[in-house]
Amino acid sequence: MEINLRTSGTVTILDLKGNLTIGTEEELNRVITQVVTDGQKYVLVNMAEVPFIDSSGIGGLIKSFGRVKGEGGKLKLLNPTHTARQLLSITGLLSVFETFDDEATALSSF
């Protein structure tokens, strides 16, 4: 899992690349912890290049969401792939994770 950070205004954007599965979700949690520690409250996770998520990956997203929310921040998702969106739908998480198809709209929603 490759994670690149960029910022746009007050929002930190995480560009994920690779499968979000058992083992790699720890990398996501590590980065999120760093972002939160740095005092950033608004996080947009770009999932356009995450072809597959397993249950541990879902766990990683839930944990990250909790970390950011716990600091009074918001975590939103950008462009989940079809497979990822399906899994988020089955697990009922689309009701929790605000999800966007367009970066500009996502950024202006924070």
């Binding site: 839930i62 739908s89 089955i90 697990t91 009922g92 998480l93 009701s95 929790v96």
Partner: peptide
């Protein structure tokens, strides 16, 4: 609760997917 929909196949082979779209357990 966030699980794969169960498959219901009627005796006449009509198929329904049993999903209520509720949240998985233990997260929130």
């Amino acid at each position: 609760a966030g699980h794969n929909p169960a498959i219901l196949v009627r005796a006449d082979r009509k198929t329904e997917l049993l999903s209520t779209g509720s949240m998985l357990l233990g997260a929130f």
